[in-house]
Design a protein around this nucleic acid. Structure first.
Lengths: 152, 152
DNA sequence: TATTGTTATACTCTATAACTATA
DNA sequence: TATAGTTATAGAGTATAACAATA
């Protein structure tokens, strides 16, 4: 009997998690930290508030992640030019290099995964995943605001 | 420009995580605990050793998860009939009910996701995800044993 | 008064190492 | 000697609440 679509997706999610955890092992990086670096590379220097929103995580949590990344030399805190309450977090040159390499590996992994799919199925898979992603996004958004259950 | 296949998959993984986290909120359950319950429902009463292997987690971690689940009345520890060192962990009746309901919701969510995919794309999506899953499994397995990099 | 970031506190998942009771 | 589980210790991600400095 076939496994369900959802089981495949969950299994893939789990494998990704394992793969990333292993890829970062020994570098002082973790999934959460790399996620933050990723956002910094795409958004440029950012306040911790905006990082908290982008990561969908509490501001307190950002403090901890930035502390760790600062200690390992991946990011720098600089004063915000216009708001003395805020700081700007930015990638160090060496972290920019790291992220550039990571971006390249990311694209390579994509090609590798795509190569595992039968050529004739590729378009359908992309369409299907896009649809599933949108659908899930709607489900999460609908369930999100209210946690007391839907009724009346 | 199209997002990459891998980005879709990562996005879906993230949405699943958020969805589950929210679904369990307030119940005292978490992803890790539900995973353990899930295994118990499929394997029946198990020793903590076998649970550690099934969850791919340290035995010490299982102690903590079982402690928590015991405290909330989801599982029971009973003496192993043949080995006085070991214990058997088993679901309580109420947890069996919970898991049965969860299983039903799981299948419903699958149908809901499948419904979001164009009928003509469904087979290709299933085939593609199966291929991706196998491919990733191989990548993880290959990278796993050695963390000093591939060479000679 | 509202916002930015931090300190204080706490919970969860995770791991390794040392230890106890049994095999 | 080896195995099952626990205690001890530690690190990482996460959260809320209280507080400081600044808007």
């Amino acid at each position: 009997m076939d496994p369900l679509l959802i089981d495949r997706l969950l299994q893939i999610a789990d494998l990704f998690q394992k793969d990333m955890g292993r890829a970062f092992a020994g570098t002082g990086l973790t999934t959460a930290r790399v996620h933050l670096l990723w956002i910094l590379q795409h958004s440029g220097p950012s306040t911790q508030q905006s990082l908290a929103q982008a990561c969908d995580v509490s501001p307190r949590n950002i403090t901890g992640l930035v502390d760790a990344l600062e200690k390992t030399g991946h990011v720098r805190r600089t004063p915000h030019p216009a708001d003395r309450r805020a700081v700007l977090v930015e990638l160090t040159p060496s972290a920019i290099e790291t992220m550039t390499r990571m971006q390249r590996e990311h694209v390579e992994l994509d090609a590798s995964l795509m190569g595992a799919v039968a050529p004739g199925d590729r378009d359908a898979v992309l369409r299907g995943l896009t649809a599933i992603s949108s659908h899930l996004e709607r489900l999460v958004a609908d369930a999100g605001p209210r946690d007391d259950g839907p009724s009346s």
